[in-house]
Design a protein around this nucleic acid. Sequence first.
DNA 1: AATGAATGAGTGTTCATTCAT
DNA 2: AATGAATGAACACTCATTCAT
Lengths: 214, 214, 214, 214
Amino acid sequence: MGAVKNKRMPRAVREQQMLDAAVRTFGQRGYRAASMDEIADLAGVSKPLVYLYLNSKEDLFTACIRREAAALTTAVRAGVQPGLPADRQLWAGLRAFFTHTAENPDGWAVLHRQARTHGEPFAVEVAAMREELVAFVTQLIVVAAREAHRDPSLAEREVAGLAEALVGAAESLAAWANATAGVSAKQAAATLMNFAWAGLGDLMENRPWTPPQD
Amino acid sequence: MGAVKNKRMPRAVREQQMLDAAVRTFGQRGYRAASMDEIADLAGVSKPLVYLYLNSKEDLFTACIRREAAALTTAVRAGVQPGLPADRQLWAGLRAFFTHTAENPDGWAVLHRQARTHGEPFAVEVAAMREELVAFVTQLIVVAAREAHRDPSLAEREVAGLAEALVGAAESLAAWANATAGVSAKQAAATLMNFAWAGLGDLMENRPWTPPQD
Amino acid sequence: MGAVKNKRMPRAVREQQMLDAAVRTFGQRGYRAASMDEIADLAGVSKPLVYLYLNSKEDLFTACIRREAAALTTAVRAGVQPGLPADRQLWAGLRAFFTHTAENPDGWAVLHRQARTHGEPFAVEVAAMREELVAFVTQLIVVAAREAHRDPSLAEREVAGLAEALVGAAESLAAWANATAGVSAKQAAATLMNFAWAGLGDLMENRPWTPPQD
Amino acid sequence: MGAVKNKRMPRAVREQQMLDAAVRTFGQRGYRAASMDEIADLAGVSKPLVYLYLNSKEDLFTACIRREAAALTTAVRAGVQPGLPADRQLWAGLRAFFTHTAENPDGWAVLHRQARTHGEPFAVEVAAMREELVAFVTQLIVVAAREAHRDPSLAEREVAGLAEALVGAAESLAAWANATAGVSAKQAAATLMNFAWAGLGDLMENRPWTPPQD
DNA sequence: AATGAATGAGTGTTCATTCAT
DNA sequence: AATGAATGAACACTCATTCAT
């Protein structure tokens, strides 16, 4: 049995307990391998109650995705101060991102690994969140280009590709940082900032980007 | 029923047909959702024959991973000429990578999405291949740094992080290029080269990296 | 379909129904040839319920063995009055044994034929019961020898062999009595008592052992 | 693979190899658990050849039963000298029986355990052999009774029961002797002779039957 | 005399889901 | 607000058996 059985709780609380159990189970076992039995057990309730509140396995998984996606985007947004220069904003966003994914490995696994692996209905859900992150990065690139008085004809698709690459690198580094002992969220963010802002070419000339002190 | 039933084929041929069907099914449905019935049907053989030749679902999936991993690394290696400068090598490797993944979407899905999502035995298989790619990139970075007479004390972990970010960006761009109409392998490679070699900072100052004519 | 479907019964009752069906099916078909489908059908429930309550075919078979072994030893023990002379005790035990096996042919088949034929895990279960019967007989022989003031150096292995022979004869006669029309439990017991107590030699000299009137 | 593959052997030899493999496999695994694959492999031939020569699994098992039954009855008959007194004949027969079963444990397992456990068609086969042994014992009892000038009205069923008990005890002791370290065929036979000829009652009075010196 | 290639039919087991209370 | 009882449908895997050579 999972949690201690506290009987007669208000629905909202029970639902969160179920989602907690579901995120953990889905994150560790995967969508198909996770059984409703295990989730109900871990949540400390009977299976019919899970169905009463969350309708079906698909709906339950979708609810997990939405909750974890909202938590992640909220965390990133909360970490960023809109007024700052583009590089400071990106730095702050990356730190928030790596911190949140490190602290919520199961939620991150649900979003990054499971949701995108198990068919359209779920991939669509997670795509919305990813869009938001990509849009955030895209806007930063555009703003930075404008600030640098760069040719405004910078192709939209080119920017989209860059943003995609940056987000992809971030996702990959999140997994790497979590799996590699001794790599903190801050270090992961610094690595990516160096890569993204200065590029390997600059690095070769010994001018790494330096994170601000905080 | 999937393929036309060609009866009485030598074992080696049948095995490749089964692997073709399995890669397609695993890539599209995922490991758990793919049924041995569907794979056998798509391969145009009966289920017992699949078991006779490939032993079990796990072994079949592992065989898929190995075949696709070998195909990908072979393609990348074949695309690279060892003698060239680091940036030319990276460029060639990326082009080969994006070309191969675009031409083998199911194989790429098996490697990138399914194998890493469904537990240790499979993740280990794919990790070996990824190690190879990361090692290739790592070595390029080290060589480039030496060529640029850069401080040789470049921390190992720092390089590892950069290589990880680059490979992660490549993996992410592969999915993006395949999903976005009109983005060729060459364009995806160029986008990533710009990002990796010059960085966003350089881009802001209007000095994009230019692919060589070929 | 086997039994009439009585829906919604408490677990304990359903379990007994399942064991009834399983003993019958295992006893008649054998362990391997008995299918869980048939057992579930005969019990009037669906297969998943059998698995929910009894876990697996192995566990189900083991549960059958334990139940039937307990029933048999209980019956034999209940038939014997400890204070009586050895021959009276043996007589009572044999009557109980033949009566019980005649009334529970499937249970007896499970114990005597199937359990001992299908591998260690089951043979071990049944061996415990057989030990008990052999021990009962062994102790009677020892007591009888003491009562007869016989040389107490009667070798242990000799006694073990005699007990083994007696129990083996009983097992064999149980099958014979059940298969031969008109042979009652009492007659089977009398035959074995004559054989065991007086031996063929005595029989030749016309001194058969006579069962007490009851 | 089991045996070394000697190609192109005469049919009669191949058949014996197959039966050897089948007896071993059936004896150790049981009828259902033994697979034709394993038997063919152990015999060093391909499965179709087994079917070509022995037709089906049922026929193969039946052939095993017949061969082993014939071997056992032949061994017992060969051990007995018809002219001798009844007790000497019984003694010789038992020795032959225990010796043969100890030397052919798989064959004995096929006859005693497997054949009687797996349905009518096989039980019938083995019953024929058992009849023969029971008949041999029955005749000995009748002869002994006549020699002892006993009342010739000795009920047929009574004799049948005694013979059944004796054979059952022998079967049981064969298993016991094989499983108990240090119990030889001769000792097993002596134990049973004591039990059968003198009975427990005589034993109590210290007059055990003594085997002749040979 | 002998076999590599192939399958129809079935088995144990699991799971998402519902009913009755 | 909550659950014990129950199942339809599917799935991985095996096996006796045959065909074509």
